[in-house]
Design a protein around this nucleic acid. Structure first.
Lengths: 223, 223
DNA sequence: AGGATGTGATAGTATTACTATTAAATTTGC
DNA sequence: GCAAATTTAATAGTAATACTATCACATCCT
């Protein structure tokens, strides 16, 4: 991504103190991404994170009230970033079909390094979104968290792509179902290819996953 | 399901002592299903389960070495049961297309009560599979657990339906990808419809979810 | 210089996910 | 029908987790 002076802004409900506002905050975010990837979300703790960044558990709690909230923060950041990439890439494309095709590519492709947001490693973040983000909404507090707007950025992405679908076929009745299926599906296929290959045909290297979901989408919405 | 003298048998790697072998074992399984549904997997503990069934934490540990293993047991039971239903329903159907259509219906439909397996409430089990089963494989031990065969029943179901797909279109390259996408997708749509309705178009009551995934499948595999 | 703010260190709590031991109850084998 | 084997219950204990609370120190701002 080009060197633009932009920043992903995250609403203040997701943190106690804005991690973008200090060096410590940014270290918390960037090293938590690394550590969740290394240890998995269950084994990751604020104590271990504090040791890694030469800070203290209690200091981290000043930014995030729990590790679950931190995961939600990362999820929001990720989807805000994807939304930005998608809007940027589809802007000025005149044909609805091309817009949708571009959006699908962005949603299903492998994430490449992006140096526009220096302290966040998007490649690793993508990996933890794939492996851990379902834990953000598979909780007993989903409904409450949903009311507080925790899943808004994700929903906005789904809505935008659904709108492209409706532009192409106004009679198609299930755009949200289709788009959330391909988003979650493509993430799962990447996870399966690494850990449960019997559940997929996707092999790393061959980037056939984009083609699969692209075909599936256009065939499904054809009237 | 008819009153047949059948039993779902689960391989001995999933438990320390077979819960089918005693009254306590069956109570552990049936009440754990209820409690995981009520509390969510995180808040569910063997201590609470012991209290509910008037038994003791330590007694439960004689059957399952951890609550994670219990979840895997439930998942295996569920997929073995689905496999049985599917084989039963597709048996003797001559046309490959009808076979696939039947299989998709079984994989994506709402689960109804089934009194063939008395002590397991399949409706509730289906709900916890939808809400919690991704936690069974989103762990740092996936690869090890996969080696031990923990996901075999699920894989077998995917393989069987993939074979139906290949019968219809031998040139289709991504049958496993397609089938795991519709299985996980349909589960997610049911979860979304209850908790994150902006991500789906599915509404309870109208069973349009089966139709959606059926259309999607046949359009996708058409040559 | 003095007050507000940010950070670090320590301690403490309730709970969890277990393990170990022992005793009581039940089943079984003969 | 009784001893032996097995199963279950009860208790205690451990290391770790997910926090909360308190206090001291450093820094920044004016």
């Amino acid at each position: 991504m080009k060197n633009l002076n932009i920043q992903i802004t995250i609403e203040s409900e997701f943190y106690t103190k804005n991690p973008e506002s200090s060096d410590l905050g940014r270290r918390i975010v960037s090293h938590s991404i690394e550590m969740i990837d290394e240890l998995g979300f269950e084994a990751f703790t604020f104590k271990k994170l504090g040791q890694r960044i030469n800070s203290n558990e209690s200091s981290i709690y000043r930014y995030f009230e729990s590790k679950h909230k931190l995961l939600i923060y990362l999820m929001c950041w990720y989807w805000s970033w994807v939304e930005y990439k998608m809007v940027f890439a589809t802007n000025n494309i005149p044909e609805a079909k091309d817009k949708l095709q571009t959006a699908i590519r962005i949603l299903t492709q492998k994430v490449m390094e992006d140096n526009a947001f220096s302290y966040i490693n998007e490649v690793v973040l993508h990996r933890i979104i794939i492996a851990e983000s379902s834990k953000a909404y598979h909780t007993k507090d989903v409904d409450e968290q949903n009311k507080k707007g925790f899943f808004k950025p994700y929903k906005r992405v789904v809505q935008r792509v659904s709108d492209f679908v409706i532009d192409i076929n106004p009679d198609f009745k299930f755009p949200h179902m289709l788009i959330s299926t391909i988003i979650e599906g493509s993430h799962q296929q990447r996870y399966f290819s690494e850990h449960l290959p019997a559940l997929t045909d996707y092999e790393k290297g061959k980037e056939n996953i984009i083609q699969f979901y692209n075909d599936l989408t256009f065939k499904t919405i054809a009237s």
